[in-house]
Design a binder for these strands. Sequence first.
DNA 1: TGTACATCAGTGAACGCGCGTTCACTGATGTAC
DNA 2: TGTACATCAGTGAACGCGCGTTCACTGATGTAC
Lengths: 241, 241
Amino acid sequence: MRNPRADSVIQVKGDRQPSEGRPKRQRNARGQGARLTEDIVSGALALIEREGTDEAVTLRAVAREIGIAAPSIYAHFPDRATIMLAVVARVFDELTQAILQARAVAGDDPVERLVAGCEGYVAFGLRGPARYRVLFSERRLGLDDSWRDYCEPFEIGPDGSPVLAFGAESFALLVQALSECIASGRSRSTDAMADSTAIWVALHGTVSLKTAAPGFPWPEPDDFVRQFVLRLARIMPEPPT
Amino acid sequence: MRNPRADSVIQVKGDRQPSEGRPKRQRNARGQGARLTEDIVSGALALIEREGTDEAVTLRAVAREIGIAAPSIYAHFPDRATIMLAVVARVFDELTQAILQARAVAGDDPVERLVAGCEGYVAFGLRGPARYRVLFSERRLGLDDSWRDYCEPFEIGPDGSPVLAFGAESFALLVQALSECIASGRSRSTDAMADSTAIWVALHGTVSLKTAAPGFPWPEPDDFVRQFVLRLARIMPEPPT
DNA sequence: TGTACATCAGTGAACGCGCGTTCACTGATGTAC
DNA sequence: TGTACATCAGTGAACGCGCGTTCACTGATGTAC
């Protein structure tokens, strides 16, 4: 039994053209179809940054963004959630790079390297709040295992979700930086994991709240991050000479 | 010029009944119409908790939830954003109550009261992650001044949004608790505002990340919160006697 | 005390919209014979 | 070297859905005269 409207002459609505007024990208050469996979992720990220929320990422919006027809996405991703997962993987990579870069200009002092990495983390988050937000706001539930086909095969947690595996690299940088402070006698910390976790939590809170509550009277002299990192890392008041 | 389909005999689609299979609430008595305002907020909150995200709050979903027709909402709220604002106001009230309650059972020691309040904050967040999330995740942009009609007249920030004014009460409790520690000589802090901010940021980060990344190896002995609060509040190792 | 009327607290049907998803298809590019 | 065919990289039209919003309305309850 077909829907009687399907063949009807009456045709009032009808969808708009999927890429109305957009530059239509030219099709990839044979064998280069995988490029579109990257473009879909880039398009989703561009939408997130422009609209300020990951709710803007719909299949049709992404398709419009990069100038393809919506159904073309299915050849690359099974659903929206998997696109978001690929976005998260990319943004975590960018975060790691930002931390490494901030640390690189900090010189050799382990405390300065720790602080610089932390300040780099916060700066990255404040530079693109919507981009940062997807790292931790996305509920990665309702995903079957097919996500493994679309990004690196990370570890998965006890609840079967790949949630934190993504941030592992950035977090490892933090643990390593704190460990170097401990090794060089600059930190009194006796539990690098726990203290790194406390630092991470405070860094994330800073980005999240500065973004959500810009009207709050944030402490002005911007060693705010430095101050709490030094305390949480149990850095000694004076370096031993 | 009317739409030609409007009077057409052809009628294939047609919306479903707005409250199909739901208990229809009985109408409020004359003069008690404002009760529905409260019910709309409660319905929105119930949806958030059940679905785990504030995206579940649509006018139609709220109407279904409380057994009214969708257009009835317009007599109480002009749009979704204003409903969410009322939800946020209520949840901030609950948060303040949770902190006060946690503090009430902590006795008289100012440090214990500070820690208890902080632990109460985190416990509140973890008890209802979706409920907590609306406090800081909602973008309160695109609101005209009519929100003032739907909740208490809070202060508004420099960007014209009422963002942080909502949390002011809870934050004031924290500043007060830290100030008492300073006054009683238990804290070396010289800047109660800045140090309270650092604590708040870490508390929020803890709730946010424990929720987003349950698979992360969180420090087991659950004085995690206590430990970072003591450091950020600059509490002395031993109380002076 | 009766009754016309105003007000309150909503309802029900319909609109157009963007969305995810399906289906059959198209046109260029390689490849076997 | 020519040509039939397979494959790749997508397209275009259509579907049903839930949504926000509008419109005219309804039925109970108070109130002026």
